[in-house]
Each structure stands twice: as structure tokens, then as C-alpha cells.
Simulated assay, not measured.
Amino acid sequence: MPGAEGATAQAQIRGDAMSDQLTPEQTCRKALAVLDEVEKAVVGKRAALELVLLGVLAGGHVLIEDLPGLGKTLMARSFATALGLDFTRIQFTPDLLPSDVTGAPFYDQRGGDMVFRPGPVFTQLLLADEINRTPPKTQAALLEAMGEGQVSVDGKSHQLDPAFVVLATDNPIEYEGTYALPEAQLDRFLLRVRMGYLPPSDEAAMLLRRLDRKAERVELAQIVDAEQLLAMRTSLESVEVSADVVDYVVALVNATRAATQVQVGASPRGGLALVQLARARAALSGRDYVIPEDVKAIAVPALAHRITLRPELWVRRVSADEVVASLLTATATPRTLPRQQDAAGAAAAGTGAGGSAGGASDTPSPARSNPGPAQKPAGAHR
């Protein structure tokens, strides 16, 4: 049975959800089960799937930008099924109106009143398919929904579902009949993901799977539901971020503003995105603390779409991804030691400083660059 493994995973996961508060370790188990289920439909793209799930866990929206036919829509549908979210798809076209997205008031003849009719944005997972095919006026209809989780019509605010998330697709190779997303819209996306072509071995595996199942669509099981997803998001607040990692994030964001190749650097929202995505990656790795490698792994997807390059770089075919990657190389990385190595190093020192570090080993800081009390989790004071 195609859903047997998913049903078993779901039963085990719901056992974890008996308590309202989840730990990062429980979130890790749930997230890995979701990834395994989605990977039954989307073959050979584990890294891209992880990035999308990190965005969903961090409570943000994801822009999936790549060529046609690479499984962007399939990925969104598969996540909606595995996460147990209500799914709505909007095909963005040049004649789409803002009211077609948000909804509009209409006259109720029976009651004689104007009644608000919700649009497709009132869902839990919204697939904004080919978002760059609609004019900026319609694109802007999503700004408030993505930024504040509500829609304002005729002076009244209508709240969206707490689990609301947008997965938008963008075709980067067609320019005729498309409208580039403005910077304000791009900044609303927590990260941008690219999928790329499959290696020949994975493409062969995908074709063989299609032949074996003798059906077009893959039947996926629901692993979690909206309530559990919200609990997973809440668990990220217990993932600690040390002061040196916070300084590293600030240094990266400021590097995008000071770089000679960049015309407009990342906004403060970029720093918030880095921190939340790093927390999500730490939880996905089974840790309750962030290390610099978490920040490095998500820096390009989180920052590249937030910067504007100088015009001459387009002629030289320099991409924003390459610029952010070079800034990562140029920015000093804090040396953060795991708990066990930190405690062992302090014990081996055997000096007066070692006595101080030994005291810290009773209640070790999850991530620190230098042993000592200065390593205070950022969550404690921010």
C-alpha cells in the first residue's frame, strides 16, 4: 500500500504531539518524516526540499525560481499533502485582478447587505504559480497577506489562517509578457530556492518509478497537520543562538550593504530571516543550538534575492548568488565549539581560567566561540 509507511510515521509522530510543547528533537523527527514522504514524489532534490521545509518551519514564504518542467508545482502540492494543509493554487496571468486574489465584497440580495467573499488567498498553503506573469498591481495584492497575515478590504481587516504560507513559482527565462517582482515583494520571501536539472542517474530513477507505479500521480500520506506544524514552528523558539552567531549574522548583512558590487544591500528583514532559518536548520539537524555552519548553509538562499547589483554586473553576467557566496568567504567565521569539546578543552587547560570554564561546564552554553560566561544565548536578551 502506497501510504502504509506514511501512516506508520504519522502514528509515531502523533505520539510526540500529545503535549502542547514540542522539543527541537521531536520537530526533527516530524520534519524528516515529511521530507521522506515528499521525496516519494519529487526525486533527487533532497537539498531543495530541505530548503523549502526550512522556510515553512520558520514561518516564512518561499520563492521557487527555475525552468519549466522541473517539478516546482509538484513540490508545492506534495508539501501541502504531507503537511496536512488546505491547498489552493492561483495561476497568475496578465488579466488577473487583485480582487481575484484577495476576494471582494458583493451585494447579498437576500439580506440587502454587502458581504465579503474571501478569495483564494484564504487558505493554508497557497501556490502562486508563475507569479511574475501578472502585473505589479495584482502582485501587490499579496504584500499585506505575506507580511502581516491579513487582508484589508473596504477598511476592514480579515485575518488569514495562522499556518498560512505562500509557495510562489517564477520562470526566469521568459521576459515577454512577464513583470519582474519589485524589491518590496522579493523581500517578503524568506528565501529563494532553485531546483536545477536531475543528474542522469536520478532522472532514470524517476522514470523507473513512473513505470513501476503504473499511474501518473503519486499517492502521498499526510504526516502532520496544521496544528502540529504550528507547534513545530513554536519549538524553534527554544533553539538557542549565541552572541557570536548573532554578530556573524550582522556582519554578513552589513557586508551586503558595504560591497562595491551591490547597489542596495539586504534589509534588517534579511538578518531576521538568517536567524530563523538557521534555527530551523539546527532543529532539522537534531540540535537545540545554532552553529555558524547553519548560517552559511542558508545565507545564499536567504540573502541573494534581497540585494540589487550594480547595472554593470549584469553585462559581466555576475549573479547575486555569486556575490553573496564571495561575501561569505570574505567574512570571518566565529569558532564555535560543541558542548563536549568545549568542556574537554576547559578540563585539559587545568589553569585558573580552566576552573572558570569548568564551572561553565555544569551548565554548558550550546554554542560558544570561546569558553567563558560572555557566551550568552541571544534569545535570553533579544
Results as ranks from 00 to 15, higher is better:
residue 292 P to M: 03
residue 293 E to K: 09
residue 293 E to N: 14
residue 293 E to M: 02
residue 294 D to G: 07
residue 294 D to W: 09
residue 294 D to N: 09
residue 294 D to L: 03
residue 296 K to T: 08
residue 298 I to D: 14
residue 299 A to I: 02
residue 300 V to M: 07
residue 301 P to R: 06
residue 302 A to S: 15
residue 302 A to W: 14
residue 302 A to Q: 15
residue 302 A to E: 15
residue 303 L to Q: 12
residue 303 L to M: 11
residue 305 H to Y: 10
residue 305 H to N: 10
residue 305 H to Q: 09
residue 306 R to A: 05
residue 307 I to Y: 14
residue 307 I to L: 08
residue 308 T to I: 06
residue 308 T to E: 15
residue 309 L to D: 13
residue 309 L to F: 11
residue 310 R to V: 04
residue 310 R to W: 09
residue 310 R to Q: 13
residue 310 R to F: 06
residue 311 P to M: 00
residue 312 E to F: 03
residue 313 L to M: 05
residue 313 L to P: 00
residue 314 W to T: 14
residue 314 W to P: 01
residue 314 W to I: 05
residue 315 V to P: 00
residue 315 V to N: 13
residue 315 V to A: 14
residue 316 R to Y: 11
residue 317 R to Q: 08
residue 317 R to M: 04
residue 318 V to L: 08
residue 318 V to W: 09
residue 318 V to Q: 14
residue 319 S to H: 08
residue 319 S to N: 04
residue 320 A to D: 04
residue 320 A to G: 02
residue 320 A to W: 00
residue 321 D to F: 00
residue 321 D to A: 07
residue 321 D to C: 01
residue 321 D to R: 08
residue 322 E to G: 10
residue 322 E to L: 05
residue 323 V to A: 04
residue 323 V to G: 03
residue 324 V to C: 05
residue 324 V to Y: 11
residue 325 A to G: 04
residue 325 A to N: 04
residue 325 A to M: 01
residue 326 S to E: 11
residue 327 L to P: 00
residue 327 L to E: 12
residue 327 L to M: 07
residue 327 L to A: 11
residue 328 L to N: 07
residue 329 T to L: 03
residue 330 A to I: 04
residue 330 A to D: 15
residue 331 T to W: 06
